[in-house]
Design a binder for these strands. Structure first.
Lengths: 280, 280
DNA sequence: AGGCCCGATACCGCAGGGGTATCGGTGCTG
DNA sequence: CAGCACCGATACCCCTGCGGTATCGGGCCT
């Protein structure tokens, strides 16, 4: 199977429509139809059901969609990492983390690593929440600071950095602000304080009553104004100012901050960073 | 980058020789040379150093070799899994384990899973030690029973099944057979009992004094005959018969038996098996 | 019934992948 | 030191197969 065929198939599967897919691929529809037909013939597998209104995926097609995406990401990663490795003759590493994430932890890690003999140059790339794992998958980054259970860690090697509980942040004057602890269920169903909605990777928001937000300070501002409440790892308490109250959550999942890197990493810099992290 | 180019490059990199690589790929040398040159041009990266006696890899080349192998495995996996999924309309799972591995554990797991409502059909494939991880990587299997730290778990999602210590097995009459415990260093340097050598994935053996072996019963036989000693997980004690003595190893790494599966697994069967394993 | 939307088919042109023959450079060898 | 063997690059040719345009065939809605 060639990556060209995979790209074509993924496009058609995602668009559920040959015409739009061809458009997206910058080609015309007939060769695309032919390529997919040929792929099906070569695999000996029916991937799509042609309907008069577009196409649907078969079971096999769904498998190829998810596996194919992963395979394409792996190929893209190979290409990106090769290019980057060639660009910098000395060992260098791209580390990505959530913008506004626990910076004292990263400072500690980077400082400790910098003291190592022949430490590689570490370029830190801060990106919006949820973008770290994809960057690691497609080779834009070599290491990432991720958060379990929020990020999808599948396919990465990891070493834990810290673990913490989660807390509910409510406005200072709110009736619940005097509570010491509560359950997650109770926290998610406060009548007058709907939890905010965070954007998906593509920038869209889930349905629901809460406000659409994507920024920590923005959220805390809105909590202060009595418009929402929010569940966050307890380390945010370091950034809290007046007007906010913290309630422990008894049954919220622990949040683990991990250092993650792709398998088959040949970079000595990554290895050194991991070694340093494991000693912290 | 097309998989064809990757296959070509990997072949040349592994053979360190255009002619042999072309041979292995079933083509002639000139188009291969051209394809690699074109790949280098398109990447804008020098991958190989041409010498009069063959080729050497550059730093970028080494990156592309390891990343490329992973990418090719991912593509192969996509193809295999798609084919298999198409073949069996009902949900089915291929589980692979080391031939002669802890069978009571697997029986427990499979029995527990079989009682689940709408459990998928599980096909168990026993294969030689060390072959499970590659099978999982290239799509011949959906789940595997692997052993840390022996198997390379990178890139898989895992859930631990059991953890055990390792012991040294010596002939019953041997002077060391009365010892209760010892260190790994001591165990690996018994003058008259060299540890056996196990085959690599390709069937070749490492250099060394010990006998070449690949089978558990064969090893135990040879220990009984006073020709070798062997370090094994303590669970082998269940299979021991007369003529063998067991010595605890104080500082040997713990062996963890894990259930591993590839990320992006869309199979409901895999998910069910994992859930069952996590409840054990 | 007519027009639409969508994928399949027919046909054509050409880029590029693969083949054979040969070259150029390097290092071993008699 | 000349000759040769080895190895990758180059030159040239053929033909596969990819992509393009034009058109068809069949549901579905109006």
């Amino acid at each position: 199977m060639e990556t060209r065929e995979l790209r074509y198939f993924v496009a058609v599967a995602e668009e559920a429509h040959f015409g739009r897919a061809a458009d997206r691929l910058g080609m015309s529809q007939p060769p695309l139809s032919r390529a997919i037909a040929q792929l099906e013939r070569r695999l000996g597998v029916e991937l799509l059901v042609r309907t008069p209104r577009g196409v649907t995926l078969t079971v096999a097609g769904r498998t190829l969609l998810s596996e194919g995406r992963a395979a394409l990401a792996a190929v893209a990663a190979a290409e990106r990492r090769t290019r980057r490795r060639a660009g910098t003759p000395h060992d260098s590493v791209v580390l990505t983390a959530k913008a506004g994430a626990s910076s004292e932890l990263m400072v500690k890690l980077l400082d400790a690593y910098a003291t190592e003999p022949d430490a590689a140059e570490v370029e830190v790339v801060l990106s919006p929440p949820g973008h770290q794992a994809p960057m690691l998958r497609d080779g834009r980054a070599d290491v990432a600071v991720l958060h379990r259970p929020f990020d999808d860690l599948s396919g990465f090697d990891i070493t834990p950095l810290t673990t913490e509980s989660q807390v509910l942040i409510v406005p200072a004057g709110h009736p619940l602000s005097t509570r010491v602890a509560m359950s997650v269920e109770e926290a998610t169903s406060i009548p007058d304080l709907p939890l905010p909605r965070w954007p998906h990777l593509d920038g869209t928001y889930p349905e629901g009553p809460g406000p659409e937000l994507h920024d920590l300070t923005q959220v805390l501002q809105l909590v202060r104004l009595g418009r929402t409440a929010v569940v966050l790892p307890e380390s945010v308490q370091a950034n809290l100012r007046d007007g906010l109250a913290v309630v422990r959550l008894l049954d919220a999942p622990q949040v683990t901050t991990v250092l993650a890197w792709p398998p088959h990493s040949t970079s000595g810099g990554v290895a050194g960073l991991v070694r340093t992290a494991e000693r912290l």
